[in-house]
Amino acid sequence: MIDFLLKETADENLIVLFNGDLDIDSTEVVEEELLPAIENYKLVNINFENVPFVDSSGMGLLLTIVQSLKAKGVKVTISQVNEDVQFIFEMLQIPEILGEDTFI
């Protein structure tokens, strides 16, 4: 289950600090709370520092976030992914799906 914290930067961009596992139980939180809150920014950075685990539904959710924001003209970047999670992302070629420049 994921929790998130929003932080606006000086240049009116948004940093989303994820906290917890990005998993099947996060669906509601993400779709109903997070997405409406961030879709009006130009640039959103999602910080994965405190995400120790992901599951397949959680990754599906991540793809939905990035792709739906992209469709609305919001550029999303993802940073500080821990090593174990990054390994899984790479195995599933998620950086290639989202575009290599998404991961910073």
Binding site: I24, V54, D55, S56, G58, E83, Q86, F87, I88
Partner: peptide, 16 residues
């Protein structure tokens, strides 16, 4: 893999 949570597989199957 250590970073992978498999508990949704029993609920939703392998489809995701």
């Amino acid at each position: 893999s250590p970073g992978f949570k498999a508990n949704d597989l029993s609920r939703n199957g392998l489809q995701p």
